[in-house]
């Protein structure tokens, strides 16, 4: 797979965008998916760097979460900013990672991500609910390394 933008089918991408868009209606937090070619040795560091690069550190409540995938070295990381990280339990990220990686092993990438996003969205809605009723958009919710 030379072109990593083909990592998801168009249908999977639409479904993921829909899932992510729905999350924005429930919480002030933001979830994004980043697909890159290689993470190097430390996928957490790569995810953290991508988090900064995507401008996700700018959130007021520091409650952004990034689902990071590196395609060629088959690595996955879920990374949350300080706001959400300080509120969830220690093993929460591990639970999310396990749920996602299990599905990834069966090549069910979109299903795995949706499951993980669901878990994170629950926590986000609990700790950072959004009571405003307005139309939202989530630009760049799914992005690919050029």
């Amino acid at each position: 797979m030379a072109d990593i933008s083909m990592f998801f089918t168009e249908e999977e991408k639409s479904e993921l965008l829909s899932t992510l868009l729905n999350v924005t209606y429930r919480t002030t937090g933001e979830i994004r998916i980043r697909v890159e070619k290689k993470a190097g040795r430390n996928p957490m560091a790569a995810a953290r760097q991508a988090f900064v690069r995507l401008g996700m550190r700018d959130s007021r409540d520091k409650n952004g979460v990034l689902f990071y995938i590196s395609v060629f070295d088959r690595k996955f990381a879920v990374f949350g900013d300080d706001g959400i990280n300080s509120r969830v339990s220690r093993d929460f990220w591990e639970t999310v990672k396990k749920a996602v990686v299990e599905k990834f092993a069966g090549r069910q990438f979109a299903i795995g991500l949706s499951g993980g996003i669901g878990l994170v969205a629950e926590k986000m809605a609990q700790f950072f609910p959004d009571e405003k009723i307005d139309l939202k958009e989530n630009p760049g919710a799914v992005s690919f390394e050029e």
Binding site: R74, D81, D82, V101
Partner: peptide, 11 residues
Amino acid sequence: NDFGGGAAGNW
């Protein structure tokens, strides 16, 4: 650079 938290693994 040391902020946030998470988990990572291979699939």
